[in-house]
Computed example of a mutant assay.
Amino acid sequence: MTKTLEERPATKPSLLAEARQISFWAENAAPIGLVALVIVFSILSPSFLTLGNIRAMLVAAAILVVLAIAQAFVITTGGIDLSISATMTVGAIGFGMAWQAGFGFLLSAIITILAASLIGLVNGLLIAKGKVTDFIATLGTLSVATGLALIVSNGKPIAVSSPELLVLTSGSLGIFGYPIILAAIIGVAAWFVMFRTRFGLHVQAVGGNEESAIANGISASRVRIAVYLIAAGLAGVAALLLVARVGAAEPAINTQFLLNSIAAVVLGGVSLTGGKAKIVGPIIGALLLTALTNGLTLLGVSQFYQPLAVGLVVVLAALLTRYQKK
């Protein structure tokens, strides 16, 4: 009996060390996973680390990076935006119609962001003032926005031949295309807002403990409306990148952007229950998902298997988040 009691204290440090080790992997899942993918794919495919492919991956990742940042603001408050891909589509159609009407690039871009932001405002009001759960509210606006895009465009893509969009999609500084540079600028601005402003502190406080935040004078309803507006506005920016990449405003939504934007945030270590903010993590998560898809494509893996691979990665990341430091 005495021997058993003497052995017990030695067990606790061992368990603590094991917990810390798991926590390390959980906190750094995105960067570790990205490095691992780069090593594996560079070995399996000689063209993976070529300058041309790296540039293509970064350009392809730009839209997802912007959407992941948008989703990070919402998820930090404990919410979720299921309408973000449809919001992006509405913004794209808004640009296409404004461009066709001869409004020019700048005014068309403003209309794009305003059209997308309108969806975000509706989401925010439904959730903050109407007390509708975020899942139901954004699921509803997902359907409404999808219908609006199809009705307004008559279900047909709107061709856009804007010189400004051509520069945006083809211009670069070295291997960094303008889309990823724009996404990086947005990332820096988002990091500053989240971690260096009072508003960012309020976002984290509302997600951590809404009742306590309200008791400390924070207007939770205003914060929620604001984050959905931010998310929708960024979806409008993503719409510009999408139109530039495709060369047309497509009325059909791409649900892959919705799923991957949430997946990137989960991979980036942002808690789905709210209160834990990260910006760099979701950006790395978006780069990881893009690298995964690109690498599988280079290896000739069927597109049918790619969602399966992404899903497995996300489920693993979600399991690891249980061991993150609080």
Rank of each mutant, 00 (worst) to 15 (best):
R196G: 03
A190N: 04
I225C: 03
S219Q: 12
T169K: 12
T197H: 04
E211I: 12
S172M: 15
L182S: 05
A226E: 11
I230V: 13
I218F: 06
I214T: 14
E211R: 14
A226H: 09
S170E: 07
S221N: 14
V193C: 11
T197A: 04
I230Y: 06
I186D: 06
I218P: 06
Q204N: 04
A189N: 14
A189S: 11
W191I: 02
Y228L: 01
G200T: 07
N209G: 08
G208F: 01
A184V: 04
G207V: 00
L182T: 04
N216T: 07
L201G: 14
G174M: 02
A205V: 01
F192P: 09
V188F: 15
L229W: 05
L201C: 14
A189H: 11
I181E: 07
N216E: 07
S212A: 15
E210T: 12
A184K: 01
A220R: 01
A190S: 12
S172H: 14
V167H: 11
S221D: 14
G171N: 08
I180T: 11
I214F: 09
G187S: 10
F199H: 06
S172P: 15
W191P: 00
R222Y: 11
I181N: 07
I180N: 09
I230M: 07
A183E: 09
A215R: 13
A190Y: 03
A213Q: 02
V223I: 10
G217H: 07
V203W: 03
F199W: 09
I218W: 06
S212W: 03
I185Q: 05
G208Y: 01
A190H: 04
I181S: 07
L166Q: 15
V188M: 10
F195L: 05
G207E: 00
A183I: 09
L201F: 15
S212C: 09
F195W: 08
A205P: 03
F176W: 06
G217I: 08
R198V: 14
L166V: 13
A189T: 13
S219G: 08
V227F: 00
T169F: 07
L168H: 01
R198L: 13
Q204T: 11
Y228M: 02
V227Y: 01
I214C: 06
V193S: 15
E211K: 13
G187E: 03
M194E: 09
S219C: 08
T169E: 12
I225V: 14
V223G: 00
G208C: 02
I181H: 06
G208H: 00
S221R: 13
G208A: 02
I218A: 06
A183H: 08
A190W: 02
A189R: 10
L201P: 07
F192N: 09
Y228A: 01
L201V: 13
S212M: 12
A184P: 01
R222D: 12
A184T: 08
I185G: 06
F199M: 04
V188L: 12
G217L: 08
G187C: 05
L166R: 15
S221T: 10
L182G: 04
H202K: 06
A226V: 12
R196H: 14
I175D: 03
R198Q: 12
V223R: 00
A213T: 01
E210C: 10
S170D: 04
Q204S: 11
R198K: 14
R222A: 14
G207H: 00
A231R: 03
I185E: 05
A205C: 02
V193W: 12
